[in-house]
Design a binder for these strands. Structure first.
Lengths: 352, 352
DNA sequence: TTGTACGCGTTATCAC
DNA sequence: GTGATAACGCGTACAA
């Protein structure tokens, strides 16, 4: 046992300070908040004591009293994708700037986990939350848990993987336009037989990116060959599927809807004896470390994840603090931008 | 305005249920907790009502009453590294399994942010936290904020980037051994002039990995050439430094302490006209998506981030729940393992 | 200038 | 079997 305050000083409460200095709790409270009601002498005595023992008000008590936690929730399907990691960064930055904590929950793309996450967050732990819907949830199409918390008056902002049926603030990117621009870029650089490696259609963003691909082909009178469309169901074992797919087809361009698919594609093309970008141009989606550092570095559609996260946090906190005068729900669209790198810059073939 | 409960049902409290059913608050509380004191009739009536309107107890009130939040904090220096992302996954999984939420704060490697984060987490929001120290904090060597919260009785577990001066539970990997094994592997495969690309020494893990490199050289009577050691200060602009360094030296092996350095090294070697692994073998540290998908895929020392996070969460929650009978603080060492990939598998040179 | 009383939502204890 | 009361820590309206 050691009572030396430098060694062991348990958390202080107002009550303890009051007892120690022989005043009432409310006097301490007022003194610490610089109330003019309290005499200079008392105030200074109390403040000095509080500082010495490093008094900090208890957040939980404040939350209960004020009926607000100054905490926002963030529910993500996964995190080992650079994209979601950057979303966290954006959310966290804005939240902290505006005095909020961020409570992160991972659904691991599981519907049940997502339901549990929402229940937790809605039980008073947070003032509202940001959600990117789990894959399984999009597949099931069951959104009652979302409807539930929203009907309880909890502000919700959906980001990236959104659900049209649910009415709330949303932050998305122009997936379709971004994809169209990328494919347009391939066409402009001479590609005519462009394969797309995408996800199954129930993933909202995969579907939209496929649409963009189709639009680009149509807009340039490039013939659509259904055989050049690969829709991946199982992302974890996608490499083999991509390898077979590309091995059996004559193409001069690839558009992949994420970095994983793009790198698999490059590898498959190399194995086939082709060069990127000399023989085949490759465009990726979702700008992360992988695209930047890959050899050849990958041209990508930048999703600006941090911007999306930041925007989502702004929308949410505005909603929480009711500074949104207009009651209408917003759908903010963050513009993508193309980042051109080596994988689409044709070098002179002869000199290689 | 719409009072249809299916459209809008604000959160219920015990008090509201009590008023609605004309009983007392304590009766409601007991009925919902299946207390035998309450008659079947009353109990069923109350439970039915609570279920219909989806009553859930308020977490904040429970936290205040029980003096425990069932929330743990996680303070990380950055997140766009696969390693820390996997740590989050591990922490989150264990925490959820044991009924805890995870509050994530990013220090962005800033000392000030870290201090703020700790203050927030220590003000009642969490029952304890896991911390990986910010770069700037290690540089300053100022740990009073950590000492502070620990002396308040808040359980703390440090992970990966730990501080020896602070006494608490820790989870680290055998950085030095992992590095030694990697370099040993290079030596076993014929390398004699092995460069190391590492961080400045105030980063604890960088220093340890450098030690492992030195031990491997000594253990094999490979001459140490100080000129083959590159210590990076500014990670963001490391590529240029690495390029110059490798460009000017004759080497047959590279050991890099992270994926970023390793990929920069490969690129620099290619630019120099060398092949990996034909001319130079490259071993990396920290097994992430980048290493797996890079071409050539990179041999790495796997840090098992998810395991480290899981272990840290176990230690922390044990400490919180006082199931640790032994009062001694533990330092758990998660073993690294070598993952051998293309970057160190010498193919027959002639056939290339 | 200081202290008392109340309420945030919950549960435990005790009285009826 | 049910209800009133106190307590968790805080802030504030109001009373002294």
């Amino acid at each position: 046992m050691n009572f030396d305050p430098l060694i062991m000083k348990p958390k202080l409460t107002l009550k303890q300070i009051a007892r120690e200095l022989d005043v009432s709790v409310s006097t301490v409270s007022k003194a610490l908040r610089d109330s003019p009601e309290i005499s200079d002498e008392t105030r200074q005595k109390i403040q000095a004591f509080a500082k010495l023992y490093n008094y900090k008000p208890n957040n939980i008590a404040l939350s209960l009293k004020n009926r607000r936690t100054r905490t926002i929730g963030l529910v993500l399907p996964e995190i080992v994708h650079d994209f979601f990691a950057t979303v966290i960064t954006g959310v966290e930055e804005v939240a902290n700037k505006r005095g909020y904590n961020v409570l992160i929950c991972l659904s691991n793309n599981s519907f049940d986990r997502e339901v549990m996450n929402l229940e937790m967050l809605a039980n008073g732990s947070t003032d509202g939350f940001i959600l990117s819907v789990a894959k399984e949830t999009q597949q099931k199409g069951d959104y009652h848990h979302l409807q539930e918390v929203i009907s309880q008056g909890m502000p919700v902002v959906m980001v990236d993987r959104v659900v049209n049926e649910i009415i709330c603030d949303k932050v998305i990117i122009d997936d379709s336009d971004g994809a169209r621009d990328a494919v347009q870029h391939l066409i402009d650089n001479g590609c005519r037989r462009i394969a797309i490696i995408t996800t199954v259609d129930y993933i909202s963003v995969g579907k939209l990116r496929t649409e963009g691909y189709l639009r680009a082909l149509r807009g340039n009178d490039v013939e659509l060959d259904e055989d050049l469309i690969l829709k991946i169901e199982d992302v974890d074992n996608s490499h083999e599927a991509i390898s077979q797919f590309l091995g059996a087809r004559e193409i001069d361009g690839v558009f992949a809807v994420n970095e994983q698919f793009a790198t698999s594609a490059v590898k498959a093309l190399l194995n086939k004896g082709l060069s990127v970008p000399e023989d085949v141009l490759v465009f990726s989606f979702s700008d992360g470390e992988l695209s930047r550092r890959f050899i050849p570095s990958l041209s990508t559609v930048n999703q600006h994840g941090a911007d999306m996260g930041a925007k989502a946090a702004e929308l949410l906190i505005d909603r929480i603090e009711k500074t949104v005068t207009d009651e209408e729900y917003q759908t903010a669209i963050v513009k993508t931008s193309l980042v051109e790198r080596e994988s689409t810059q044709k070098r002179k073939k002869a000199t290689v």
